[in-house]
Each structure stands twice: as C-alpha cells, then as structure tokens.
C-alpha cells in the first residue's frame, strides 16, 4: 500500500470572509428546502368515504321478469319494484355500472346487454336525472370494449354520457379498519353520485364461481386488480358494503355457463331471457345463482356477504315477484 501524501495537494482554503458568506447563503436555502419538503410530503388528494344509500322502500324485494325483449323485461322489472322514481329523483347524478370488461360482441354474454343499459339510461333520464354516467374499467383494451360491446352506442343514443375512466380519479377509499380492502383506490364518480345502479351480466367465473353484481363492482376499483383475487370473497363483500348500490339489475338475458368470464364461444352461452332487479345486491346475486342451478350458499362471496351483514341471501323468505311477459 502506498500512502498518499496530503502535503502535495494544493487545496485553496477559502478566506474567512468567503467562509462566513458561504455559511449564510447555505442557511438561506433552508426555508426553501423546508418548503419543498413539506410540499413533497403533502398528503395525497384526500380519500373517499363509503357511499351512503338513500333509504328506499320497494314494492317487493326482488323482481324477476322473463320475456322476449331485453328492453321490455328491464322496464317491467323496474316497474315491478315500484318504478324508477323510487331510486332516481329530479336533478340526480346517476351512475350505471355495466360490465364492459371484455372485447366481445353482446351475443357472447361477456358484457351486459346494451338494450338493458339503454333502457336504464332512458328511464333515469325520464325520471329527471341530470346526468347519467356510464363507465367501466375494462380488462381488454378500453376503446375496443366500449365499441364492440355495443354499450357506448346504446348509452349515447338514449341520452346518457359514457366515458373512459381517468386514472387520476381512482382515489384511496376509507375502508373500515382491518378491512382487506384498506385504502384500495376506488373511482371517484362511483362514490360521488346520488344513485348507483349496478347492471352486470350473469356469468360463470373460474375463481368466484359466478360473476354477478358484487363482482361487477370490481370495475370501479383501481390498482392491480389481480391482487384482489387473493381472499376475493371477503374483499367483494367489503367492496359491496362500500359502494352500497341503490339498485341492482342483473342481466340474465344471455348467461355464460362455462369458460367465464370472457369465453368467446357461443356454445357456452345460454339464453335465459330474464332480468333480476332489486335493491339488495346480495339477494339479487343469490337469486341469479339459481339460474345456474346453484344454491346461493355454493357461492363463497354470497356466503361471506351474508355473514358480514351486507345483505340477505334468503330467497325463501324474501318477497320475489316472478313475471312472464
């Protein structure tokens, strides 16, 4: 090892005056740095509180309508519950959340029937809703999903506004302490609305068994949604409690019985020509499960939701109006 002699290094040492000046100028930058620091550490732009639901008395717990036209059965189902006026008031901002997750034509039953959505939009507009917003955070390319599902056209023609989600509007939700969903980002519009209508299509799903209205709510969540699949049943129950939909209408005009949630094979589609509508999302899901010849208790997230008091799955004791038109 060679020692380096310091005596040869020609370092110009600052004069005392320069030194003091340097100290002062360094001190002067402290408040600026402090200011920058507090700005950098500022809390993110707020969090979202859970959505409050308006108390609504419906004519029955669940309306199940069967018929040839998706539009007619949707209208009849809402009418059976007591009319759209019970949910939507004049000047309301309404959010309708369909399933537009996949780039599939409506015949493949991977997305909600556009006629069902068009009818809902028209009903809300007729009830005096100021704005009817329709959106979904899609799994496939968003522009393609919106166009090929037929929902974008349907909404525009019936007077609603359909738009693509803006990433900046996913805001951490204030889920209760201990929740597995803690501060999961949720779309702002889904919470800041007067009426939330969940309008999924009934489908088979490899993990949750079936994807119905509760799983439909995943479409308002941001973040890496694949990670929600871990312990999904409890998360779906917590999410449903958070979003608290006013009205759930499950499109079972065509249902996907295998290879859900996207399939792409017409052989997997079964035509049921049914819609299920109700104020309780869990009850609507429970009934929809029976369309697949399954018991509500077979579906883990329905079981969990009942356990957590999100809703009821007791089909036998509920007032269900079954109508054929």
């Amino acid at each position: 090892m060679k020692k380096i002699s310091l005596s040869h290094t020609a370092v110009k040492i600052a004069s005392r005056k320069d030194f003091i000046r340097g100290i002062f100028s360094a001190l002067a930058s402290v408040p600026v740095l402090k200011g920058l620091e507090s700005w950098a550490h500022a809390a993110p732009a707020g969090t979202l509180r859970a959505r409050a639901k308006r108390p609504v008395a419906t004519a029955c717990d669940l309306a199940v309508v069967k018929g040839e036209s998706p539009a007619a059965i949707t209208r009849k189902a809402i009418e059976t519950l007591g009319g759209i006026d019970r949910f939507v008031r004049k000047g309301d901002t309404v959010v309708i959340k369909p399933n537009i997750g996949w780039n599939r034509a409506p015949e493949y039953a991977a997305t909600t029937n556009p006629e069902v959505i068009a009818t809902l939009v028209a009903l809300c507009r007729a009830a005096g809703a100021r704005r009817v917003k329709v959106f979904d955070r899609t799994c496939n390319d968003a522009a393609m999903c919106y166009a090929n599902s037929g929902i974008a056209d349907a909404v525009r023609k019936s007077g609603g506004s359909i738009y693509h989600v803006i990433n900046a509007k996913f805001i951490p939700g204030q889920f209760p302490p201990g929740s597995l969903m803690e501060s999961w980002p949720v779309y702002r519009d889904a919470v800041e609305c007067d009426c939330f209508i969940s309008a999924p299509v009934a489908k088979h799903h490899g993990l949750s068994g079936l994807t119905l209205s509760m799983k439909n709510l995943m479409g308002v969540c941001g973040g890496n949604r694949g990670q929600m699949h871990w312990n999904i049943d409890r998360k779906l129950a917590e999410l449903t409690k958070f979003i608290n939909p006013d009205l759930t209408i499950i499109d079972a005009y065509r249902i996907l019985t295998r290879n859900g949630p996207s399939s792409g094979r017409l052989g997997d589609v079964k035509t049921m020509k049914t819609v299920v509508a109700g104020a309780d999302p869990v009850l609507a899901d429970a009934f929809a499960a029976t369309l697949f010849d399954q018991q509500p208790n077979d579906i883990a997230h329905i079981r969990k939701a009942v356990e957590m008091g999100v809703g009821s799955a007791d089909i036998a004791r509920s007032k269900i109006m079954k109508i054929q038109i």
Partner: peptide, 21 residues
Amino acid sequence: LPYAKGEDCIVCEEHCPVKGK
C-alpha cells in the same frame, strides 16, 4: 401463486381469450 403458495388466483385463466381457454 397457486403453485408457490397454495393460494387461489387464476387471473390468467380468467383473461385467456382463446375459445375454449
């Protein structure tokens, strides 16, 4: 996840677009 930790996941199966998966 299922292979490494024994946790249900199947996000891949869910997204697979091929007819018949």
